[in-house]
């Protein structure tokens, strides 16, 4: 097995096909990254949302009990 390209420039140009190959790679990696980041964000958002809701409910309970 041998590396097919002499230097970095050749790897990027890929004998004229570089723009196609690298666009495909870039868009694929970005989309795949989005598929991981999106649920992680949602996860954090949900946790925060649930904690906030819980605190609000407790506050309401204590103010109701006070008088």
């Amino acid at each position: 097995m041998q590396f097919q390209f002499e230097n970095l420039e050749e790897l990027l140009v890929m004998a004229g096909h570089g723009e196609y190959v690298w666009t495909a790679v870039l868009v694929s990696l970005l989309t795949m990254a989005w598929l991981l980041v999106k649920p992680l964000q949602q996860h954090q958002h949900n946790l925060r949302d649930i904690a906030r809701q819980h605190r609000r409910e407790q506050q309401r309970q204590t103010t109701n009990e006070a008088p």
Partner: peptide, 23 residues
Amino acid sequence: LGFAPQDAKQGNSFRIIYLHVPV
């Protein structure tokens, strides 16, 4: 992208196969 030999007919553009087919 780096080590696989290039395709005789399609040259380097065939390397897209490594994303296209699995996806």
